[in-house]
């Protein structure tokens, strides 16, 4: 129920971010910035609009800036320049308690490396986001049990992450993100660490949820099949720049350049 707008986002890693911004705007190339100033341009002027309830996939090779881009959405990374608007509100301006509340109620995230709390069991992990924002114990238990059932982990409530397989751990990660019932769900290569069979199974779980729930989902992957299977629309990044945006079929039939062609070409 939320739309997301990235507006001219730049992200430069290094001490002299702002000076680097100047140089970049004046036309100094990314490569020269790295060579001369040891500055990494993570995101180079990306603007993107993601619609309400859309399942939006971001694709690109390793190092193309996918993770960096989506971490702008909940302020885990601050841009060097540009705005991130969620429902017209600029996330980059949020501070302190406002930012915490935004993270607690607006966006939830699933991570490639799961990021589960190893000292908490499945149940406790799933209601972590709820507990943090101060919901009552009953509320926590009720919602957690519901989402554990949805992702198919009933019976494992008392298990610890280290006792579960990778696929099961990511179900916990998914349930933890869903339990907060935020409008926006961000998934950073959630299934990359899983083997093909389990990955397919998880994709089906995700598709299932997509039908049932009205949510804006931003999904990162470098697997084209996965993108095609899940995406309403998708974007392709290369070296921190946005190359092409469109529905999967548009992109396959009409690749913008050689880079995109090499992506989609393999599959034909």
């Amino acid at each position: 129920m939320s739309d997301v707008v990235f507006k001219n986002i730049y992200k430069i890693f290094g001490d002299k971010e702002l000076k680097a911004m100047e140089l970049l705007r004046k036309g100094k190339t990314k490569k020269k910035l790295l060579e001369d100033d040891k500055l990494v341009v993570g995101i180079n002027n990306i603007s993107l609009k993601i619609k309400n309830n859309e399942f939006f996939v971001i694709m690109g090779l390793s190092g193309s800036g996918k993770s960096t881009l989506i971490r702008h959405l909940n302020g885990l990374i601050k841009p060097t320049a540009g705005k991130v608007l969620v429902d017209k509100q600029d996330v980059t301006c949020l501070k302190g308690q406002e930012l915490l509340n935004f993270r607690r109620h607006k966006v939830s995230m699933v991570f490639q490396k799961f990021g589960l709390l190893p000292h908490k069991n499945v149940l406790e992990n799933v209601y972590y986001g709820l507990k943090i924002r101060g919901e009552s114990k009953e509320e926590c238990l009720k919602k957690a049990n519901k989402w554990i059932e949805v992702v198919g982990l009933s019976g494992y409530e008392k298990s610890y992450p280290a006792e579960l397989s990778g696929g099961m751990q990511q179900r916990v990660g998914l349930a933890r993100a869903l339990a907060t019932e935020t409008d926006i769900l961000v998934m950073d290569e959630p299934f990359s660490a899983l083997d093909p069979l389990i990955r397919a199974e998880m994709q089906n779980v995700t598709l299932d949820l997509k039908e049932k729930m009205k949510k804006t989902v931003i999904f990162v992957t470098h697997d084209l099949d996965e993108a095609i299977k899940l995406a309403d629309r998708m974007a392709i990044l290369k070296d921190g720049e946005l190359i092409q945006v469109g529905t999967p079929s548009e992109i396959i039939s009409n690749p913008a350049d050689e880079y995109v062609k090499s992506f989609v070409g393999k599959d034909k």
């Binding site: 909940n74 885990l76 915490l100 509340n101 935004f102 993270r103 607690r104 109620h105 966006v107 939830s108 995230m109 991570f111 490396k113 799961f114 990021g115 589960l116 709390l117 190893p118 000292h119 972590y128 986001g129 943090i132 924002r133 990660g173 933890r176 907060t180």
Partner: peptide
């Protein structure tokens, strides 16, 4: 402490003390 776990906790809106006592020190 595994930075991925910290990042995850942060993304759910854990504040400084929740992070410190609930995650960092515990782990």
């Amino acid at each position: 402490v595994d930075p991925h776990v910290i990042e995850a906790a942060k993304s759910f809106g854990a504040n400084y003390f929740q992070l410190l006592f609930g995650v960092r020190i515990t782990l």
